[in-house]
Computed example of a mutant assay.
Amino acid sequence: MEAHDHTHTHGHANDGGRGGQKNIRTAFFLNLTFTLVEIVGGMATNSVAILSDAVHDLGDSLSLGIAWFLGRYGDKAPDRKFSYGYARFSLLGALVNSLVLVAGSAFVLSRAVPRIFHPQEVHAAGMMALAVLGILVNGLAAFQLNKGTSFNEKVVLWHLLEDVLGWVAILVAGLVLLFVDIPVLDPLLSLGITLYVLYHVGINLKQILHILLQGVPAHFSLEAVEEEIGKVPGVLSVHHVHLWSLEGEKAMLSAHVVVADGSGIREMGRIKGEIRKRMDGQGIGHVTIEVDFESEECGNRDCR
């Protein structure tokens, strides 16, 4: 006899409702508009540092746009095509964003590296003017998102704060170039910004692939989860435990628990209820439990 329990206490991340989407939408249009200004300004001032930051801002604009769209689309209820829902579409967006940033960064490096060996004059005053504008625009977008509490808003907020710091660096470089003729400073700054962006893109790609390959979420320990389930009174042993995430926020768990022969429906219901309670306390909202009796063999070949 086998008893199955499919618990759907989904812990959907609260995207802040309409207010959260409005904050992201406002930040998106601010960031995208200024990215276009950056591209034109970078060419006008002959600054690859500004162009490298424009590429970074373009990636942030894509992130904001996808976060805005998927904030509604990703919460669609499960259907016949996607039985787990549409939450994992956000990972697709993150993957696209990362690849766009890698391609854009490669383009910037192709422009910046030759200039280290053959520096070109830049328009320092223009760099400073764009830097001040960049600090104001990104600061305003960050302030707008600081009002929100959703996961999307918090993640994008950190991107915008990084942009503010990048523009502060460009402002300082422009100020130095205004008084000292060190044209190599611009490509060196561009190189630093681009490598910094690529470093974080690499970290994001690693996390995205870990989730897509159904790895155990980084903030969970499979051994600790198995131990916690094993502490439930009436559970003789636990095996075939799988823990993964749909998109980095919603943790999913499936497990086989072994109970004594003759355990009744009420006893099994109590055991499953206690497991659900303990897992919910650890942030695991979707739990699937299969109950096996002590004398029966597990039906899965890979039970362990």
Score class of each variant (00 low, 15 high):
D302P: 01
L222N: 08
H12A: 13
I24N: 09
L243F: 06
Y73H: 10
G41W: 01
V155K: 06
H286V: 14
E228P: 13
A142I: 03
L161C: 01
E297T: 11
P119Q: 04
N46T: 05
V241T: 15
I193K: 00
G273D: 01
R80P: 04
N14I: 10
G262D: 01
F82V: 12
G264I: 02
T9Q: 14
S150L: 06
L191D: 06
S83L: 12
R80M: 09
H239A: 13
A67C: 10
L222H: 06
F29Q: 06
D261L: 07
K22W: 13
Y86C: 05
F82W: 13
V184Q: 14
F179D: 07
E228Y: 12
P187N: 05
L195C: 10
N152D: 08
N204A: 13
I170M: 05
V108A: 15
E247Q: 00
L130Y: 05
M127G: 12
E226N: 02
L178E: 15
I211C: 02
F179R: 15
G192C: 03
K277W: 05
D280L: 08
I39W: 08
W167M: 10
L133M: 04
N152R: 13
V164Y: 01
G202E: 12
I182L: 14
L189V: 03
A67Y: 08
H4T: 11
G65M: 06
N138L: 01
M127Q: 09
G17Y: 01
T26S: 14
Y199W: 14
S63P: 01
I116L: 14
I193F: 01
V96Y: 05
V216H: 05
H8G: 12
K206S: 14
S254T: 15
